[in-house]
């Protein structure tokens, strides 16, 4: 399983740990929400980074008080047609102000990546490393955005406003925003 994060393939430093397994010493670990809620006090005491994985029917609001302690939150997409993770992502980024890594896991297809990116998911698990170019290409398929989301891309309203004040077009706005992407 490869991790695509901020435009590049990266090694997966995180170990997903089953609920009944011991946590690895000195290695970043991801636990389930159930385990987090049950063993929160012990897990907080660890010196290595910890993350939580949410199923698609689990609200991230349960992590509201712990967001600063979490270096990673994994959202599960059991099927690509299950779109709850998009709302969870925006809730985490825009309502709860989560700044850490937000990762999509499960059935993450190329043609969903852009939607995920717009909702504030900044890393994805991809099954086939050979397909990484397609995923990256998908981020560049559009330059016009009709609604604000969790990303910094300018909406078409901003482009129109920029064009009114700067008749040469809104290209400066576009460039600035791309540079600012993945900053939450």
């Amino acid at each position: 399983m490869a991790i695509l994060k901020h435009g590049a393939l990266q090694p997966n430093d995180w170990l997903t740990v089953a609920d009944d397994a011991a946590l690895p010493e000195g290695k970043p670990a991801v636990v389930s929400l159930d385990r987090w809620l049950k063993e929160r006090d012990t897990l907080i005491g660890r010196n290595t980074p910890i993350g939580v994985k949410l199923k698609s029917d689990q609200s991230p609001v349960a992590l509201k008080e712990d967001l600063e302690r979490l270096a990673l939150i994994v959202l599960e997409f059991p099927k690509f047609t299950d779109g709850r993770g998009y709302s969870h992502a925006r809730t985490l980024r825009q309502r709860l102000g989560y700044k850490g890594e937000l990762r999509a896991s499960g059935q993450v297809l190329r043609d969903q990546y852009l939607f995920m990116d717009r909702c504030g998911i900044d890393s994805i698990e991809i099954a086939d490393e050979a397909k990484v170019d397609g995923y990256l290409e998908s981020l560049g398929e559009f330059s016009i955005w009709y609604q604000p989301a969790a990303d910094r891309r300018p909406t078409v309203r901003a482009l129109r406003a920029a064009k009114r004040t700067e008749p040469s077009g809104g290209s400066a706005v576009v460039r600035e925003s791309v540079a600012a992407s993945w900053a939450y």
Partner: peptide
């Protein structure tokens, strides 16, 4: 609603 990223699925 056009290509709304949150509400495509």
């Amino acid at each position: 609603s056009t290509l709304h990223p949150e509400f495509a699925f």
